[in-house]
Design a protein around this nucleic acid. Sequence first.
RNA 1: GCGGAAGUAGCUCAACUGGUAGAGCGACAGCUUCCCAAGCUGUAGGCAGCGGGUUCGACCCCCGUCUUCCGCUCCA
Length: 488
Amino acid sequence: MANETNRFQAIISHCKEYGFIFPSSEIYDGLQAVYDYGQWGSELKKNIKDYWWNSMTRMYENIVGIDAAIFMHPTTWKASGHVDNFNDPMIDNKDSKKRYRVDHLIEGYAEMLNAEGRKQEAEQILAGMDSLLAKDDFTGLKKLIEENKIKCPISGTSNWTDIRQFNLMFSTEFGSTVSADDEDNKVYLRPETAQGIFVNFLNVQKSGRMKIPFGIAQIGKAFRNEIVARQFIFRMREFEQMEMQFFIRPGTQKDWYEYWKEERLKWHLALGIPKENYRFHDHIKLAHYADAACDIEFNFPIGFKELEGIHSRTDFDLKNHQEYSKKKMQYYDAEVDPATGKPYGNYIPYVIETSIGLDRMFLAVVSHAYTEEDLSTPEKKDDRVVLKFPPKLAPMKLAVLPLIKKDGLPEIARQIMDDCKSHFRCFYEEKDTIGKRYRRMDAIGTPFCVTVDHQTKEDNTVTIRYRDTMKQDRVPVTEIRKIVLDSL
RNA sequence: GCGGAAGUAGCUCAACUGGUAGAGCGACAGCUUCCCAAGCUGUAGGCAGCGGGUUCGACCCCCGUCUUCCGCUCCA
């Protein structure tokens, strides 16, 4: 475990040192759990996005993408359950240092009263709690706790802190409002991208003439005010999700759930990362919207952790949006049901969601790629750090290096650059010894380096050096572009 | 949120346990180099996380604050 921790630290350092990830606003000491992607990090991230987007919207003919706004009508979050379900007031006992959800604490006390046969008192307290909770009256709630002398089960004291609320959602004011307290002007930064898909369900279905089953994909930022946000980019307050909501006929959710579990695992394995780094984890305790849920966990340096979630969300979201918006979120299914001989007719579709954290995927790719190699020989100590990215994800595809910077070698290298740079990301470098340049390319994960030498002037060939094996081949200049493109 | 530790050049670390900071690597410029970091020369980078206090004087003492790491808690 100590080694794994060191490895994680090394990866974090490497990410910063080589321009992948910087702490946000670092010159002002950073901002907790917020990070910026640097010059190579943003390339890698974009490549991951493209890989996901293309496989979703191209490989599946019945999936289309959208790009919904981060701001959404406040009612969205009432309908989705986020306002009520992620608003738990908390209280700490100063002696035991234990934290409780206020409702749990009071309910526990009421249960105790019930057990003692003091039913009426219990009911009275619970009723009081409910009305205070509804009003967000924290002082009132604390008073309730104090008046009933509710004690901490651990310390046995009533030495409580003030009640605090940890709202999952960030809010801000909308329009030219003066008062931040004005509920009418309050909008949230979305805590998940899914709702942007649900509220557009009808728009996409109708304008795209989509027939069930079909999916809507989206990549976008989401925001959560995590209480504890640590572990580098694994848990950030601002993060990016790649989500696909798949709309299906009610009753078929089990089959589609299994289908998407498999499809999503295949997607991961197609990157060439070995299977043993992935595992499924089924949820026992389900979220308020799901009837089945699992995670694809990845073996991060901090252990197996959630990378992607696959949830059977039932018709929870669409049904609620129908109720709150008074718009029919229904689909007319003209297909004939063999059981009845009649069309399936109108229904609110069920939904299977696949939701992967882009930043977590980034971390998975980097932590798997990160390799420290000992290259020592009896004569000389040597080692290198290399990022063994799948070529299609590598931020830089090709480095073009004149062996020395004279005798016309740079000019030839420049021609190779011109031939390739419009096809994929290339890097030109003539400074320092060739070995140093190779190692610098290893550090950012460039899969190919070609070196122009004097022989190039005679037979128009270069050496191509492969990142993972460090082996070299002699290839014609005219082949370079094809070799790189074939690997992508 | 609680407890513990840390915060010196881009990175890794030093400097009589108070008298205003050095090295290696890296970077940059040039030279040299015909294939895997550490050849030569030169240059640029730090008011020591930030703020305050004690002191004639603090990087080194005290307080606060921020950030990071470890553990716990919480959340899913």
